[in-house]
Design a protein around this nucleic acid. Structure first.
Lengths: 125, 125
DNA sequence: CTTAATGCAAAAGCTTTGCAGCCGC
DNA sequence: GCGGCTGCAAAGCTTTTGCATTAAG
């Protein structure tokens, strides 16, 4: 099965690259239809999945809130504000210990780590 | 607002304590209606939330799969099999580094960490 | 009695999917 | 022209919620 280059796919990828926050599929969709109102939400979801599977963008699986997408591909961590729900990069070094977890029975292939807290704005507001 | 002791609430708590795997709300519900078919799913969800808020059980927020509940209250980590979806305790010490993450702007209040991998059964099967 | 909690069913929130038509190659 | 991709809408999955009724204290 050979994949094709569609304007939708490029649009979706570029939108993630340009929206440098950590947009959800819904936010990406909203941004896209500002200029291309005929693009459908299903296509956005489909292509975000494809792009993430290809390693062109990063999918951040959030606990009990919609997945976010990130243009930064290097390993780094995220924090979500319990109050406003916004997601930010956390500026801490990679935790080596996490990379070397082993188990007698399990073949460990990865992990998902998301911090929670209260962001600056919400603390002050 | 004073809370009441209902047979449903006790039933739900005991079911989590007895099902020592890491049941989802759905699994807890299925188990309960074996003996108490009139208990409703809404009540199960409601009470699991209350019990978790009270610290009587632990809610494990899973990435892209239903929340799980755990009778073990001490800090420990979980791993989910990518293949069969089952959740297990991971037998590793608490990672101290994770407990001391600080940020200039964020007030860090916690984190959610779930490992992924392939379980023994799925490796062999 | 008072009112918190339940059962039921509907709805909400996010995401996936079936299908007919469209368009990249 | 072939068949992968799209738009649309419907459905799926997990969880929450509104409301009349039940039952705990």
């Amino acid at each position: 099965m050979k994949t094709r280059n569609t304007i939708q796919k490029n649009l979706i990828k570029n939108t993630v690259l340009n929206l440098k926050n950590h947009p959800s599929a819904e936010e990406i969709y909203s941004e896209i239809i500002k200029t291309n109102p005929s693009v459908s939400k299903g296509t956005v979801y489909r292509n975000l999945g494809i792009l993430a599977d290809n390693g062109e963008i990063l999918r951040i699986e959030m606990p009990n809130s919609p997945d976010r997408f990130d243009f930064r591909l290097e390993k780094h961590y995220h924090i979500q504000c319990d109050n406003c729900g916004k997601v930010f990069d956390l500026d801490v070094p990679c935790i080596e210990e996490l990379e070397h977890i082993k188990d007698k029975e399990f073949l460990v292939t990865g992990y998902q780590l998301v911090f929670k807290g209260i962001c600056k704005e919400c603390k002050e507001g």
